[in-house]
């Protein structure tokens, strides 16, 4: 509410800057999530519908580590956690993010071993449905654990912001953008590496890749570990203060995060890293700018209309280009 009042008083250019920063930050969250999708899809040909639940579980791990001072799944205390009532310093917080991502990657490995590996070679849709099952099975634990009020992520800067002229730039938004840039750079470098080539070979033809001596099971493992870790990172970034007003893992927004990212990966094409980078910013710009500049029609468009802007964009793109802007068209043979 305060945010809205501030925006209402601000001048046009200030509003524009704040909207732009918000769009870039939201786009960064979408990009982190989308990269998780694309890595898993490229490596294993699985569209990971479980990404929402996995990302929220990752954010929950973070919350358990830093806010509860415990360790997920284990009855020990976290020796690194700050004491009661204190917030962690920035280095400690970043270290905890790294630990969380490792935990999320391990979690991804477990899921991959139990649910995905037995399905190697099955049709695409069967794999996608498996992940839907995983989503439904994990989701109740997240919902139960967040209760109604959400759980803190112990963000060191809370809801503070820098001021840029008249415009307020929340520190969390800048942090999200930096996180996404780092994640994007790592993924791109990873794709140029020997292993990235193996991954693309497996995506192209699993049997032929196997015949060339590529360890397909290893590719599946790495893809899932990396994909789930990125999803967890997106979940954490999306839990920083201005995204949900209180700054927490929230029952309102986290359970549908991945479904909001689907338009991003469709716009870019399911198997294109560059497509995600483009689609993430494009969709977020459309969503946030529509939310800001069409708000005088808000009562006609309905409350929260900006959240469906991505889907409308997605449907239009699909009619024009059925495989997204950067996706590989399916070659159809009789």
């Amino acid at each position: 509410m305060e945010d809205l009042l501030l925006l209402a008083q601000a001048s046009a250019s200030t509003t524009f800057i704040q909207t732009l920063i918000k769009a870039l930050a939201l786009g960064s969250v979408y990009i982190m999530m989308g990269l998780g999708f694309v890595i898993i899809f490229k490596g294993t040909q699985v569209l990971n519908f479980a990404a929402s639940a996995l990302s929220m579980a990752g954010a929950m791990f973070m919350s358990i580590l830093i806010a509860d001072g415990g360790i997920p799944f284990l009855p020990f205390d976290n020796p690194l956690a700050p004491g009661d009532g204190e917030t962690a310093g920035i280095p400690l917080w970043l270290l905890t993010i790294a630990i969380t991502m490792v935990l999320a990657a391990l979690f991804g490995l477990v899921i991959e071993r139990l649910a995905i590996r037995p399905m190697i070679g099955q049709p695409l849709f069967a794999m996608a449905v498996i992940t839907l099952g995983v989503e439904i099975a994990i989701r109740p634990f997240n919902i139960d654990a967040t209760a109604l009020e959400g759980r803190s992520l112990g963000v060191p800067w809370g809801a503070e912001s820098w001021s840029l002229g008249d415009a307020l730039v929340p520190k969390s938004y800048v942090a999200a953008i930096i996180m996404a840039l780092i994640a994007g750079a790592i993924v791109i470098v990873f794709y140029r590496s020997r292993f990235g080539v193996a991954m693309r070979a497996v995506a192209f033809d699993q049997e032929a890749a196997m015949a060339q001596g590529i360890n397909v099971a290893r590719v599946f493992q790495i893809a899932w570990a990396l994909g789930v870790a990125l999803a967890a990172l997106a979940g954490i970034a999306y839990g920083m203060a201005p995204f949900p007003p209180g700054g927490s893992v929230s029952q309102e927004i986290h359970p549908v995060l991945a479904f909001r990212v689907l338009p991003v990966i469709v716009l870019g094409g399911l198997d294109s890293v560059l497509g995600v980078l483009f689609g993430g910013f494009a969709i977020a710009l459309a969503e946030v700018f529509a939310g800001q500049y069409l708000s005088q029609y808000g009562s006609t468009l309905g409350p929260g209309y900006s959240t469906i802007v991505p889907y409308v964009v997605m449907l239009i793109v699909l009619v024009v280009r059925p495989f997204g802007l950067f996706g590989t068209p399916e070659i159809r043979r009789v």
Partner: peptide, 15 residues
């Protein structure tokens, strides 16, 4: 639209 893209597009319909 075909295949997984169709599944995703129809998820859009739901929302």
């Amino acid at each position: 639209v075909r295949g997984l893209y169709l599944a995703i597009a129809t998820i859009g319909l739901i929302f």
